[in-house]
Write a protein that binds this DNA or RNA. Structure first.
Lengths: 119, 119
DNA sequence: CTGGATCCTGGGCGATACTG
DNA sequence: CAGTATCGCCCAGGATCCAG
């Protein structure tokens, strides 16, 4: 089913950037253009596989621009598009909220665990 | 591996609210307290299974408070906690960005498809 | 250096049926 | 009314190997 031509925007967007890696990549590219291996080292626990896939999706969705230089060895640079840069603001709001409230969330989880173990 | 006591905040948070349903539930509860079946009707394409699971996780993480009334038939109300309400602001920023730029993203996807079909 | 192809596993999620 | 139990599918994501 689901033949809608206009899927719910927030769900559609979250399906893409809500994965494990997209936000980290966008953050890495927030300040500067980076090459593939630079990104790989910057994030470092991402597999090259997923880095490649996620970059391709971000490119398809217009967040990131990929530039291939015809050199040997090949060089590829990734940089944010206008759309990608416009996303930094709401993303930063989210990141800052996470930083501020992370401890509180973990505390809440611990309490839930402790209560559960009162069986 | 990954025995860290302090996981990356943004990843930890995204792992929870980056799923298919959490944001929709939080949005539904943004304005008013709701009962289980009200939520079920509000979102309407969520299974009761996932509504139950997601609510429990949101409760565990401290976004939502669950209140059971000892009545017959039973009544359960869900409402945002202080933490949950504090999350509305960055969430709204994200939702508004999605609304504003959704068309552009879909356009970018279409272009990518068209170029790919030039094979 | 920058990827693609292939194989595999965990878990998110839905469907359905059952319960206090 | 407000859930839980069970089953099974699908696919994000890792590991590994191959290629331009």
């Amino acid at each position: 089913m689901e033949m809608q031509d206009q899927p719910c925007p927030i769900r559609d967007v979250l399906d893409r950037i809500g994965d494990q890696w997209s936000l980290l990549i966008l953050q890495a590219l927030a300040q500067r253009t980076l090459r593939f291996n630079q990104l790989s080292r910057e994030i470092d626990d991402i597999s090259r596989q997923m880095l490649s896939r996620t970059l391709k999706r971000l490119e398809t969705d217009g967040f990131v621009r990929r530039t291939l230089f015809a050199e040997v060895p090949p060089r590829v640079e990734y940089t944010l598009t206008e759309l990608g840069r416009s996303f930094l603001s709401p993303m930063q709001a989210l990141v800052e909220w996470a930083d501020t409230h992370h401890a509180q969330i973990r505390q809440s989880r611990r309490q839930a665990r402790d209560i559960a173990s009162d069986s």
